[in-house]
């Protein structure tokens, strides 16, 4: 990863501040954050994972599909920098995935990530007070060291992601965290169910179905989670999505 651009960084913080003012959709917010953090450097992609109260990590958002699969791979194999950053509670900064040190540390993940076209991965815990509630992975397709100041910037953005989980930021109750996280994890399931329903209705791929749902949400200025919920409970009320051939 090359040095973070100050101008791009400022834009990210403006957009984050904008999003946090109103009631917002956590998944959409994390998706936006993943896209923007990826945009900070020319060759970076980003994935975000959140943990449930059983301390199991779940995939939440990624800036692209390859990164999503790399995150899912780490979850399945329980091997990789994101898993380590989560359990260790500290950033894992790696410069070269092809180096022996990386292969020794992550025997499954390192070769898999290299095959997928990546050369470096850095992982940052999402910290909330004493808790580690998830992890943000920063993937690069060139060998790249991350300078101290860049580490701090990306860690700050990871902490912003953690804070965003607490939509009601003034509330002190620790229980809110569990309530929000479980709600967000379930919202992700709803979105996947909606993708399946639209894919089946129109005979298209689940990825194309997702584009259709997202496009509709944007055009009608509705939240992605709300549209997905309606798709699987009352599809007929969304004629634009329900009618075959309506794309």
């Amino acid at each position: 990863m090359t040095t973070v651009s100050a101008e791009r960084l400022a834009k990210v913080f403006v957009e984050v501040a904008d999003s946090l003012v109103d009631e917002f959709d956590l998944i959409e917010f994390l998706q936006m954050l993943a896209d923007r953090v990826a945009g900070l450097a020319d060759d970076a992609t980003v994935g975000i994972l959140l943990a449930d109260p059983k301390r199991q990590l779940h995939f939440m958002a990624a800036s692209d599909e390859t990164t999503k699969f790399l995150e899912l791979f780490q979850l399945r194999e329980q091997d990789g920098p994101c898993v380590d950053a989560f359990h260790g509670g500290k950033p894992v900064i790696n410069t070269d995935l092809t180096a022996t040190a990386a292969t020794a540390r992550w025997p499954q993940f390192a070769p898999h990530a290299v095959t997928a076209g990546f050369r470096s991965v850095h992982a940052f815990p999402l910290r909330l007070r004493q808790e580690i509630i998830g992890v943000m992975g920063l993937f690069g397709n060139t060998v790249g060291d991350l300078g101290d100041s860049d580490v701090q910037i990306v860690q700050a953005l990871a902490d912003v992601a953690a804070i965003s989980v607490l939509q009601e930021r003034t509330i002190q109750r620790a229980e809110i965290l569990t309530e929000q996280l479980q709600g967000a994890l379930n919202s992700r399931i709803v979105i996947e169910q909606a993708k399946g329903a639209i894919a089946q209705t129109h005979g298209i791929s689940v990825d194309a179905a997702f584009q259709m749902i997202r496009g509709y949400a944007r055009r009608t200025n509705r939240r992605l989670g709300d549209v997905a919920q309606t798709v699987v409970t009352d599809l007929a009320s969304l004629p634009e999505l329900a009618a075959p051939g309506s794309r």
Binding site: F59, E192, Q193, G196, Q200, V232
Partner: peptide
């Protein structure tokens, strides 16, 4: 034992439409 993830949930939505039943 492990999280089955996206394909299972997508299949649920597909079967709902396939069979014309509730989720």
């Amino acid at each position: 034992a492990i999280d089955q993830g996206a394909p299972l949930w997508q299949a649920q939505g597909m079967v709902m439409v396939m069979l014309g039943v509730t989720l």
